[in-house]
Simulated scan of single mutants.
Amino acid sequence: MERSWCAAIEEGLAYYRKNDPLRADLFELRYVQHRAEDDVIDQLHIGRTTYQKAHQDLLSTIAVYAAERGVFYRETES
């Protein structure tokens, strides 16, 4: 399952690098460099509302790619 998450993150980042570099930069700063939210906002020269929207979009996109890979699927007993 960990590989599925990695693939979902990589695919989401590839999408954003091509279509919306701000969201790719947000991921890099927040999750790779482990910078604080306020620092990311300053580095990207954006407001808090823009940050929150971009962050939500980024996480939602990665979640969709993860769902496509079955990350959230858990077989139940019948």
Rank of each mutant, 00 (worst) to 15 (best):
K18C: 07
R30P: 00
R74E: 08
D57K: 15
P21C: 00
E37G: 00
A66T: 02
Q56H: 15
Y15L: 04
F27Q: 08
Q43M: 14
G12I: 09
Y15T: 05
V64C: 06
W5L: 15
Y51T: 07
Y51D: 06
E2A: 15
D57W: 15
V40G: 01
K53N: 09
L44Y: 02
Y51K: 10
A14H: 12
L22Q: 09
K53S: 07
L22W: 04
A54W: 05
V64M: 10
R17L: 14
A8Y: 06
T49R: 10
I46M: 05
L26K: 03
Y65P: 02
T61M: 13
E11S: 12
R74Q: 10
R74G: 04
R17M: 12
H45Q: 11
L59H: 05
H34F: 08
M1Y: 00
L13M: 09
E2H: 13
S78C: 04
A36R: 14
E2D: 15
R69M: 06
N19F: 09
I46Q: 03
S78L: 06
D39W: 01
R74I: 13
L58G: 01
S4D: 08
E2K: 15
V32I: 13
D42A: 14
G12W: 10
I46W: 03
G12H: 07
Y15C: 00
L58W: 09
W5Q: 10
Q43V: 08
A54D: 03
V71G: 02
Y31R: 12
N19D: 03
K18D: 12
E77H: 12
S4N: 09
K18M: 11
Q33S: 08
A8L: 11
L44K: 03
V64D: 05
H45R: 14
R69Y: 01
E10L: 14
T50A: 07
Y73A: 15
D25L: 12
T61H: 15
L44M: 09
E11D: 12
F27T: 07
A54T: 04
V64R: 14
M1G: 12
L58I: 11
A54K: 04
E37H: 02
M1R: 13
D25C: 12
K18Q: 13
T50S: 05
R69W: 00
R17D: 14
F27P: 04
S60C: 08
A14I: 11
T61V: 08
D20E: 10
F27N: 06
R3W: 06
I46Y: 02
H34Q: 12
H34I: 07
E11L: 13
A14C: 08
